[in-house]
Design a protein around this nucleic acid. Structure first.
Length: 408
RNA sequence: CGGAGAGUGGUGUAAUGGUAGCAUACACGCCCUGGGAGCGUGCAGUCCGGGUUCGAAUCCCGGCUCUCCGACCA
């Protein structure tokens, strides 16, 4: 991709109506555009990041048997009424032009449970897990923190169906493992945190919390073992001794990037989702639901990885692998080789954003830092027939040949 | 939903009752070229509706929008 052809441009100054670091940097870089409070458009660069996050999620959820699907956003009142979740304070509810009562989907337990009644009949059908990556709508009283708390946001929601709580628990642990892999792959250090279930279940649940000062939640955790609880339910405070191992307990702000809920039979009973066991008895299906917010993950990454000059994307979610800068010299030939690879040698091309703009060197360097693409490749009279390669998260640059660049 | 603050070219700002100015972006020309260079020309603005006044970006009333704090919440 040539930067001169990119839909967006960068801006030197952040918009005056954004305070959050993620919103400032993402807006300056042209990743997102705020359209209303808590409502953002994801521009080509932002969409590329989001796609990479989504792809990582897909790979890990598919690996634990999740089947991807897509549910509707327009959810009729009858579904919400069955589970007594019509008229919640987070739902966008309205009358359609045909007089129907509609609630925009803010979660999909009702929908998936209703669908599942058509396909789950026997214990032989279970267990099952399906998921979607879709836009959710929540009437947040106060949208804030850029893309961290929006009224419209992306969510990967996974639902699992089981014959027993024991079987649910087995899958629950699998999901936790998969989530750890996902967050690790996108570059986040998420702590498994015990918490309350909110609108979803009365049971205790688990959240994945990324410690950072801008977080809305507070977690209480032990520095010596894996004890970690949301402050809402924790019986100890920072400075106390760990209830599990007597280690030192700390308190820290954190962003919730994922959660897992044991729903039990709440929704299967509401929707009469039953299976027949091997004795011919009809029993309610045991369910779990598991969420990750890709847009929130993106915002969290920016909050965690940035410096005075801009974003520092972890390589796995960088919108491009290489940012190629031609300084006082065209890098067109290098660009073509990077895109096409070296056909004779079988080396494939790499994903590259080529700054071919007729602008100053300083502007190009500044934009490269702001956009935060992992590898910066500079071609200039100084570099001769080599290319200067530098990681965004490092100060060390080295001169390499085209082959080395293609191997990134 | 309570409280506080703010709306001026695309973006960021100045003007506090009296000529709407600057920067940046954009267009054209010149010049320059390793950390957001320079010169010239051009394009472009007071959130909406009322009111006060000879005169309103500025004061008053209403509305809309955004941000922050709180409550709530992935």
């Amino acid at each position: 991709m040539k930067q001169s052809e990119l839909f967006t441009k960068t801006s030197k100054l952040p918009p005056k109506d954004e305070e959050a670091v993620n919103a400032k940097l993402l807006t300056r870089g042209g990743f997102v555009e705020k359209m209303s409070a808590g409502v953002y458009a994801y521009l080509p660069l932002g969409q590329r990041v989001l796609s990479k996050i989504n792809q990582i999620i897909r790979e890990e959820i598919n690996a634990i048997g999740g089947q991807e699907m897509l549910m509707q956003a327009l959810v009729a009142k009858e579904y919400w009424e069955k589970s007594k979740r019509w008229h919640t304070d987070v739902a966008y509810e309205f009358k359609s032009p045909f007089g129907e009562d509609i609630g925009l989907g803010w979660t999909h337990e009702e929908v998936i449970t209703s669908i599942a009644t058509h396909f789950i009949n026997s214990y032989k059908d279970l267990p099952l897990a399906v998921y979607q990556i879709q836009t959710k709508f929540r009437a947040e009283a106060r949208a804030k923190s850029g893309i961290l708390r929006g009224r419209e946001f992306s969510m990967k929601d996974l639902y699992s169906f089981h014959t027993s709580v024991e079987d649910l628990n087995v899958y629950y642990e699998k999901v936790i493992k998969a989530y750890h892999k996902i967050f690790k792959r996108v570059g986040l250090k998420a702590k498994l945190t015990e918490a309350s279930g909110g609108a979803f279940t009365k049971d205790y649940t688990h959240e994945f919390q990324v410690p950072t000062p801008v977080g809305e939640d507070t977690i209480v955790y032990c520095v010596s073992c894996d004890y970690c609880q949301n402050k809402e339910i924790a019986l100890v405070r920072g400075g106390n001794l760990c209830p599990k191992c007597n280690g030192e307990v700390k308190e820290e702000k954190a962003i919730e990037v994922g959660n897992v809920f044991r729903l039990g039979t709440r929704f299967s009973e509401a929707f009469d989702l039953k299976f027949t066991n091997d004795k011919g008895e009809k029993l309610p299906v045991v369910m779990g639901s598991y969420g990750i917010g890709p847009t929130r993950v993106m915002g969290t990454i920016v909050e965690v990885y940035n410096d005075a000059n801009g974003i520092i994307w972890p390589e796995a979610v960088s919108p491009f692998k290489v940012h190629l800068l031609g300084i006082n010299k065209s890098a067109e030939a290098i660009y073509k080789q990077l895109v096409k690879g070296l056909p004779a040698s079988g080396v494939e091309g790499v994903e590259v954003l080529y700054d071919d703009r007729d602008t100053s060197a300083g502007a190009k360097f500044a934009d490269a830092d702001l956009l935060g693409i992992t590898w910066r490749a500079v071609v200039s009279p100084k570099t001769g027939d080599k290319i200067e390669l530098k990681r965004r998260d490092s100060d060390k640059a080295k001169l390499v040949g085209i082959k080395e660049l293609l191997k990134l």
